[in-house]
Amino acid sequence: MSVLRAAWVPDDDPERDWQVAADLAVRWVEREAAEQDTTAVLVLNAFGAEQTVPALRRLTQQHLVATPRSGRQRVGIGVGSVLAYVPDAKTLEFATGLARGSSLAVVEGSLFPLRGWAAQVHAIDLTRPEDEVEELDSRLTSALGRLKFYGNNGYGPPFDRQQAARVLDDLRSAGLLDRDAVLGAMAAQGISPNGLMRLGQLIDSASGR
């Protein structure tokens, strides 16, 4: 079972205070937990951030907190709504697993781009909750399906990498090769963190970086 509802706070305004971003996500997750009568979970890359951001500290006073290193045994599986705070790819994958059958909010940081992820999971932008959810170009969406097919083994086998590279070359030729959008979208489709790393390398090669 997948995540039922998703929301995010994009890192698109240098003037937006991190406390404001965290507060938007915390309030949404708390509402989701109350409606579902479940326990919320704050997911961090590492323990410590919850002590420096007041909104996060407030959340942990009544709910749970975990990191990929602490593992699922600390909070269980699918226990309720989840807030992933400025996650990297590994932390996002972990948070998504915990939010299975429930709700997931993510505050974007510099470690992993989320625009493609948000479009794939139809996440509400909590800074503009009345706006329509951004959609990816239909041609890009079609290519993402092929990338997922070749990424089931994390783009490890040479054949999979070759085929993925061809898809990326086609996107580049069409002017649709957006690194952040592709990586975020493929994370939403379940490509592993290692697979995303290899895919990023393929994108850089296709872009001539």
Rank of each mutant, 00 (worst) to 15 (best):
G76L: 07
Q120T: 13
S173V: 13
T91N: 10
Q120M: 14
V41L: 04
L136M: 12
L42R: 03
Y85F: 15
G151K: 14
E134Y: 01
R69V: 10
D17S: 04
A143F: 10
A25I: 02
G109I: 08
G195F: 01
V75M: 03
G195E: 03
I124H: 00
G156I: 15
D11I: 03
R74T: 13
E93C: 03
T38R: 12
A7E: 05
L171R: 11
P54K: 14
D131Y: 02
I124P: 00
A55C: 04
L183M: 09
D169G: 02
E15Y: 11
V3C: 08
G208R: 15
R146A: 05
D169H: 07
P54G: 06
P87C: 07
V133R: 12
L196G: 01
G78S: 11
A84G: 11
T67W: 02
K148H: 06
A89Y: 05
R57A: 13
L42Y: 03
R57T: 13
L4T: 14
D11T: 02
G48H: 10
L144M: 06
L56W: 05
Y155I: 13
L83C: 05
G190D: 08
Q73P: 01
A25T: 02
L147K: 00
V79F: 05
R69F: 07
L59P: 00
T91R: 13
L64Q: 10
R16K: 13
E15Q: 14
A66F: 15
Q189V: 01
V182S: 05
N152G: 03
T127S: 05
S110H: 11
P54S: 12
V65E: 10
N152F: 06
T141A: 10
